[in-house]
Design a protein around this nucleic acid. Structure first.
Lengths: 221, 221, 221, 221
DNA sequence: GATGAATGAGTATTCATTCAT
DNA sequence: GATGAATGAATACTCATTCAT
């Protein structure tokens, strides 16, 4: 965690440093990310950096925290499933929201992705948080689905959540490859390409596979 | 590709170098992997390394090749689905074989994984191969399933393959976390922990979700 | 150009680094001159060097600049030819001044000499300056000589300047060889050996050849 | 000097090695010239090289010897001044022959040039030979001129030879710069550009300056 | 609290030379 | 006499971190 001095900084200065740090760590892996470059671009002294953060890893962990927090915030902004909203319907929204976040905050997604990958030495507890990822969230969703009667209670809820999670986590990458969308284009159009009919159809197909696979009764095509 | 001199080396020396290189590149990303450390541990001269490989990238690409080749070999050792063998039955075997490989060769899996992540200079064609990953393989499996009548032809075959792929790719990590198995233990017991009843049950559960989701007619529990 | 940090250095430290750098680059060609050796002898950290200079070439260009600047300063210290001072008389002074510089700053002369030879990466503009060398200066001198009526206007002024230049450039080396003067001795006595009668007589002889060759009317011996 | 084994080689092989060595040493300075490259291009083993030459310097010294010998041969092919041929007339021929050699054997000239410059560690005696250069030859020419009565015996013969030498040595470079001739063009046309009227006029001008400067009686324009 | 010069271990790569075969 | 793998010292350059001001 950054030292108190960092949080004492004027808002705009703190924001600038954070912004440049995100840019730096998104653009290259942990080792190649350069503190020198950050402080130079931020116009602060090398020594000042070490008054805000204990070291490079300290900054890095903070960036991961911020990325996770922002993603959470983005997802929670999607209206949660009401007692009468079908979990699969909610999943449609969630996936779109998740993808939109991933592709409109590509640098933060990149940083989280790298962290997953084991890009830098991480403290055990941080590693655990990252590795668990969104699994607990989907676990909770599955339980709601069971309560709503749209998910067969016979399934192991955790395995079901894993299946949700796996699809959710990999769909973005798949869509990009399948539809031959360049990441730059998403940046430019704010992720709209992911809401084109072709993209929606693919998402829909994947969800219906889950729906039929997990559902209480078989769903006719 | 390594130079001929590398392949001319006595088997044990060549194996030692390969072993240490795998260890090195599995332990850190491309930039941080150190040729100096490899040669020092291997007890060979710096110059000798450059008589075996043109440069760092040459070694790296070779490691990826070896990892892919070994994984292929491991998977192909699993009997291919005969004309009358159910694709889902085959998938059970495949997943187990894949997991066994992944966890008995964790460093090679790690290297391939990092390659996916793109933190190193890769020639275009290598990058393409890696990015597509196992998707084409699963696509073919889906088509077999359709031919066998166990997968509903109404599904988009590519999306179905994606779902297979996503489950297949993430299941190993999930199992480890779920069963709280330390990677070291797998190394020690040759992957047997993954064949314990608890592990098999989870794999089975995931496959049955797919089976029901993708199957031609709903499958009763 | 060195970074500001270099010029901020205490005078003696800056001088020491410059001195050792001159020694290094005079003693070998660009490729063989070693930054490592310089920093080791200067007792500074490798990294410090790169805080003073952007890279090896940066230092090298600076050394050339310094050499040229110092030579210019030395030559300008010789009183310029007044309107009524004979160009040949001026040349006598100039040659002596030039030689004195060349032999009391042999390492700087060496560096400039090597630069001429082109064994190092030079920016286009620096290369042009060096390649033209002192030719333009002598061209101007010839024109003064014509104006003074001591050089025959029938000669091609540029060829005449070339002849001046060739003699001027090579005389030093010739004197050393002819008089069997060891370069070290010049260093020790501050170039005085070049002002011994024998040396002056040779210089004089060469100038009189030019004088008669270029002069408006033949000069009696 | 190369070992006897080198001279025992079949003519074409020996010639090939020599050719490639000249190319290599002409193309870069001593340190950058690479034995590895030479042996690779020559298709001989690294070890074989060291059976022909004791080391890199041995080859280098041999190349200098060859260059000097060939230049001498080229110059001597120019008819020597007969008892009744004016030394200055001879000089015209000589300069042209020298320039032609220099520009039709640019790689050898380059090597000799670098040697002059102090590109590599040279044994004392070789250095002396190179430094003296063509001076003794011009000294002899001056003496002939005096005998012929076209050079004033009052001049110091050695200084006169120095003046000849300086002009002779620097004229080529001057011509190239003055006439803006690219070295490549000379290579292409076999040095003919140096015999164009403009080039001849400049050479002539320089010789006439010497002629008047050194001549027994003043020469009218 | 801010500064920024100093540090030095670290990196990949090169190449003349040796020597066992 | 030919071979070519092995050697290791050498190179320029980087960068997180410290600390005196």
């Amino acid at each position: 965690m950054p030292k108190q001095t960092f949080f004492n900084l004027p808002d705009d200065k703190r924001a600038l440093i954070l912004e440049l740090a995100i840019e730096e760590f998104a653009g290259q892996n942990y080792n190649n990310a350069s503190i020198s470059r950050i402080v130079e671009r931020a116009g602060i002294a090398k020594g000042s950096f070490y008054q805000y953060f204990t070291d490079k890893q300290d900054l890095y962990l903070y960036l991961i925290d911020v990325a996770i927090a922002e993603k959470k915030r983005a997802l929670l902004a999607t209206p949660p499933p009401g007692p009468d909203m079908d979990v699969f319907a909610y999943l449609r929204w969630l996936i779109t929201a998740g993808l939109r976040f991933e592709f409109t905050n590509p640098r933060q997604a990149q940083i989280a992705y790298r962290a997953l990958f084991g890009d830098a030495p991480l403290p055990e507890e941080t590693r655990a948080v990252i590795e668990q990822g969104t699994q607990p969230y989907f676990r909770q969703l599955v339980e709601q689905g069971v309560a709503q009667g749209v998910i067969d209670p016979a399934w192991d809820a955790d395995v079901a959540a894993f299946v949700f999670n796996a699809i959710f986590t990999n769909l973005g990458e798949y869509l990009l490859r399948r539809l031959a969308i360049a990441p730059e284009r998403l940046l430019a159009d704010g992720g709209q390409a992911l809401e084109a009919p072709a993209a929606r159809a693919i998402t829909e197909e994947a969800i219906r596979i889950l729906e039929r696979g997990l559902g209480r009764t078989a769903v006719a095509d």
